[in-house]
C-alpha cells in the first residue's frame, strides 16, 4: 500500500496559506497547497485559463486565485469558480503521521488520459 503513495515530505515544509511546487520529469508540475484551515491539496500547477502558475496565487478558504488574471480555482475539485469555466487535474493526496503522500499513479499519469 505504501508503494502506491509517494512520500513528498513533512507537512511543516509548506506554510499554511501557501503552496510549493513539485516538478515531474516528462509530466506537468504539481502544486501542493496547505490551506489556512489546515488541509492539503495537490493540483496540476497550471491555470485552465492561460496556464498561470496556481502555486503562486493567494489562498483563501479552499480556493486559490490565479496570479495572472485572478481566476478562482477550487483546490478541492480543480474547477474554475464564479463565471469562469475550466478545470485543472487534481492529484489524490493524503496526510499520515505528519507526512504528505501523493497517489503515485496520478503523479506520473499522462494528463491527456485524465482530462474530462
Amino acid at each position: 500500500m505504501i508503494g502506491d503513495w509517494l512520500d513528498i515530505g513533512p507537512v511543516t515544509q509548506i506554510e499554511p496559506g501557501t503552496a510549493r511546487t513539485l516538478p515531474v520529469e516528462g509530466g506537468e508540475e504539481i502544486a501542493v497547497f496547505h490551506t489556512m484551515r489546515n488541509e492539503f491539496f495537490a493540483i496540476v500547477n497550471l491555470c485552465p485559463h492561460r496556464r498561470g502558475p496556481l502555486s503562486q496565487g493567494i489562498v483563501h478558504g479552499d480556493v486559490v486565485t490565479c496570479p495572472l488574471h485572478n481566476w478562482n480555482i477550487s483546490l478541492r475539485s480543480g474547477q474554475a469558480l464564479g463565471g469562469d469555466e475550466g478545470c485543472v487535474p487534481t492529484i489524490p493526496l493524503r496526510v499520515d503521521a505528519g507526512r504528505i503522500y501523493l497517489l503515485r499513479a496520478a503523479v506520473i499519469a499522462p494528463r491527456e488520459a485524465r482530462a474530462a
Binding site: 509517494l6 513528498i8 515530505g9 515544509q13 509548506i14 506554510e15 501557501t18 510549493r20 511546487t21 513539485l22 516538478p23 515531474v24 520529469e25 509530466g27 504539481i30 501542493v32 503523479v107 506520473i108
Partner: peptide, 10 residues
C-alpha cells in the same frame, strides 16, 4: 521555501 521546489519527480 518560497523559491525552491519540494522535490523533483523522475
Amino acid at each position: 521555501d518560497l523559491h525552491n521546489h519540494i522535490a523533483t519527480v523522475r
